[in-house]
Design a protein around this nucleic acid. Structure first.
Lengths: 215, 215, 215, 215
DNA sequence: AATGAATGAGACTTCATTCAT
DNA sequence: CATGAATGAAGTCTCATTCAT
């Protein structure tokens, strides 16, 4: 399970001076806006550079292609989101609580970074490798925590990776409704409650025991 | 919650003769292959018509645009998948059993119709309206059943639509792993077991009761 | 010694109808003008299509790239020139006479087909494979004739292929002066006389014999 | 007949210090490699400066444009080759011997300076003026020698410039085969023998006399 | 004397769509 | 009902050249 960007990732070109670094960041920011709002294929390099306030040619000083900046974005988002979630659940008393907090943090975070959600999902069709890496990475870290919680008898036994993926699936599909279709949708709070109950039922050990480190 | 194709859907053009019907189906089949294998944007009308064995111009006798045939495909898949799943769970003794059977049926079905999965997911970026309709439709029907089961005390109370979406999310994210990344993945059976436990834990009423119409 | 277009040559795409054939010829004609006048790299597809009176996209119905039409042109010119020269020397009484006639025919032909000369020479830098094929082909046919003449004792013995190449070299370098730099140049006739003397001295058997296979 | 670089040639810019001179030479060397290996149009200033180990901007301190450095290269090669050939034939006892030695020296020299041959030929399409100057210069010097030899009755009478061009043509076309296509080619020695016979037959006075100082 | 980031014009190529047959 | 040649807009990318440091 690859937990590191495939060697094909990361190798962007580009100046390394102070000024260069600034330009690079401007491009990434502009690209996030474009890709998020218009989607990969409707986005054009020229809009990106316009947004960034640089000439078209400048783009290619930093990224070899449209695909490459997209990939860089996906990697960036992976790091950002994981850091954010880690911090959010840092103080959780139990795995169950971590789940509740984590789900809410995820949805709030996505709401504030509208483009992130869309870009990550679209990556499946733009750069499947990066997409896979994104989720594989996320799920692996997640699974690690679940495995530990299983060890402590806090949650139901089972393949932790599958559990992680299931939890991620719940979060992302709730995202569809609340981030994408958010018209006539019940308030987030109510959905969170139901979802949390679902999740906790899904991972908490069956009442009768079975999660108690036993087996 | 739209449960019917928005008026913008469905209105394909096209002859109604016997021969015409055949051509139309050939085009849809070819499009499914192209879109599934190369993605919407890399697919070209000319490849589709080639695959279908008709001239390029013929395409526009049946569909007004590339987007339109894509949408038609999404609708077709919606019908197909729902029918298939209904039949699969028809004989289930309980909601819990229906879930187990349904999840497995879903994954097996997608495996046999490789392109379906991809096309449905990509529709988010090609025709968000159709995408939304696809899942909204699916979730509504699903929610209906869950609501009934709640009424019978078979499952945990809560917003059935949210439950439905969560269940769909679990299924689709398992699909990512087992349909898309299927390299070094544990056998489907094992994952199904964990996932089923997760799902059933997630929807079954808490042991102490509480699903029984009570509360 | 490849005497047939390498498999990479010849495979142009393109409609095969009557109208298609006409368009194709228009494109080839336009390309010849462009390449001849402005050189391969300064020529642009758009000028070519403009000259031909078709839309830009039409170009790619017939040729896969700028390189491909260039190659097609080189092949076409190879056929044209060889046919012309064959016909010109058909009635020559001896090899020596054939050379004289051939050289003159070559120069006159190039003068009437200004672009041909330039395109063939430039092919060395655009498509070395085609360039090689052009001259290899030309030299092989030529060498065949020389070998036969050697057999008849009409000309000096020696590697006929080398002789052929030398003769071609003389012709092409005379072309430089008389076709390309033709400003303050002595009349063609005078140069032809010197060149013919040179060539005939070069190939005729040494007086004392040496072509002794015959005579 | 221009025997001196047209005023448009030669006027490169550039510092005159010790260090500056070194940089200039590094650039010329790098350009020779690039132009020789990839051709004028595929060569890029940035590769040239990279090879030379200087920054891109530095290039324009020494040459006003890509064309200018190319021209400088052609001029340089002209000087180099002429000097080399002069020296090679210096001790030749007769014009005939000089030709034999000269042809061989030419081919050996080109083999050791692979790029020279290609660059000189390509100059026709990059800077026709420089190309013409290159050959005009070469042919004029050559013709001078031939004229003298005619005077001494050593060689056949005729326009010496045409003779010179013919001889150059033979050499350059032998170069095509032995420098460019050198795969399945007979050993250089054998070709040299045939070519020498050809050349000497071509220029030596007809046996019966005619070169005897008469006229 | 040198640097190297930035520029921006321009080229090739693709492809959804139209239309005369 | 079908054909397939033609269209032309749009987009990615390259690269010679400039300029502030």
């Amino acid at each position: 399970m690859a937990t590191r960007p495939p060697s094909s990732l990361t190798p962007e070109t580009g100046p390394a001076t102070e000024r260069g670094e600034r330009t690079r960041r401007k491009l990434l920011g502009a690209a996030e806006g474009e890709f998020g709002e218009r989607g990969f294929h409707h986005a054009s390099i020229s809009s990106i550079t316009q947004r960034a306030g640089v000439a078209q040619g400048t783009f290619y000083l930093y990224f070899r292609s449209k695909e490459e900046i997209f990939r860089a974005l996906v990697e960036h988002m992976n790091r950002t989101m994981r850091r954010h979630l880690s911090e959010a659940i840092a103080g959780a008393a139990s795995r169950a609580e971590a789940e509740r907090i984590g789900l809410e943090a995820f949805l709030r975070f996505c709401r504030e970074h509208e483009n992130l959600y869309r870009i990550v999902m679209e990556s499946q069709f733009v750069d499947p490798e990066a997409h896979r890496w994104y989720f594989t990475t996320l799920a692996s870290g997640y699974a690690e925590r679940l495995r530990a919680a299983q060890g402590r008898g806090e949650i139901r036994r089972g393949d932790p990776y599958t559990q992680a993926l299931a939890l991620i699936g719940v979060a992302f599909f709730m995202g569809k409704r609340h981030l994408l279709w958010g018209d006539d949708v019940p308030p987030l709070e109510q959905a969170l409650e139901t979802a949390t109950a679902f999740i906790q039922g899904g991972i908490l050990p069956p009442e009768g025991g079975g999660g108690e480190g036993a087996r």
